[in-house]
Nucleic acid binder design. Sequence first.
DNA 1: TACTTTTGTTAACACTGTTAACTAAAATTA
DNA 2: TAATTTTAGTTAACAGTGTTAACAAAAGTA
Lengths: 201, 201
Amino acid sequence: MGIAERKIRQKEEFRASILEAAWLQVLNDGWQSLSIRKIADAIEYSIPVIYNHFENKEAILLEFTKEGFQKLADTLLEVKSRYTNPSEQLEAMAHAYWDFAFEHKEYYQLMFGLGIPACEMVNQIAEMKLMTSVMISTIQEAIASSNNTETNYFLKYHTYLSILHGLVSIEMIQKVGKPDPEKKMILQDAISGFIKSLVIN
Amino acid sequence: MGIAERKIRQKEEFRASILEAAWLQVLNDGWQSLSIRKIADAIEYSIPVIYNHFENKEAILLEFTKEGFQKLADTLLEVKSRYTNPSEQLEAMAHAYWDFAFEHKEYYQLMFGLGIPACEMVNQIAEMKLMTSVMISTIQEAIASSNNTETNYFLKYHTYLSILHGLVSIEMIQKVGKPDPEKKMILQDAISGFIKSLVIN
DNA sequence: TACTTTTGTTAACACTGTTAACTAAAATTA
DNA sequence: TAATTTTAGTTAACAGTGTTAACAAAAGTA
């Protein structure tokens, strides 16, 4: 009797159609405005059916998060396979990582918990310029007292801030409680590497 | 007539009390669960009065974002003033930045748009381990074929990912549309610095 | 055909942000 | 002081959100 199989298949198709409708929503309006009701509307079923296939809204988003990590890992593996030298591999993977993030922005934001109300206007915040100027001036001074005074200070500022923010936010995502004190070693490592490349070059 | 002054003062006090109640909520349950209704409840006024002082909920969060950047800038300035050498300053500022992020977690999350539903369970995602293992294995291979084979690969993996994520998310926060192609230079700069410090040491 | 299980629906609960319409108090003017 | 205007604050609603209990209809089984 293939009835059970058909049922499983139909259930799977239903589940897929929910994800498809949800993903269309995410692509159109961002994951922030995804709603169960809109999904139900899109698949032309009532709201509670969605809860037969997903425990809650978060479970649907989690599905995309998994998909995103899968896709990114596949991409990295593919890119890695095009080189034999590990250094070349790391460099190519870095570019692939960057490209993935912007080609699949919605995935990336879900994967790393990005996207907040206040995000869009962070540029306009005057108070941010204070922080920026402190960092930039210090970097300029470091460059001035270095071997290579031609270094692009703005580029280096951006690198400095990115390293810091990357370390912090990766740590915040992974640990819910207090930061691992060992992780300060990573900060030390990354920053001393940055400073070295800044002043010695 | 001091009436007008008193009114302005009272209005200012009211505004401050809203922010105070809001901040208590944020500290207790995170900025995600801040609600106008709960603020109104805390200050023992009806809901619409809040809209006399803030255009909307986002405006309240923006206030904290500004506060956060102000505090961070102050901290960095103070730390910088303790040193004269720019390299030392950059290093001390980096540590201060890290400390600020975790001592004022709620500020930091608001400032950089962090904190998403799926965040807390990103550890459990099996698919993430694929990405991790690709990166780690490549780094191990790079270390193996380097001068310093004693390098801590896990530390370097964490640094690698943090640099990448930092660059991407800073770019995503600042630009709404497509990424600045010039920013790939920053990626190139940061990554080649990382690889250099990995293989040559 | 009668019974059981699955599937899907309606309607509600408990929340959100936001705003229009109204009332009571305070300040201003005649 | 009395009448009027302005301001402050309220109630009640609108339009959403996620989630679930109670019920009806369809499908499968005996």
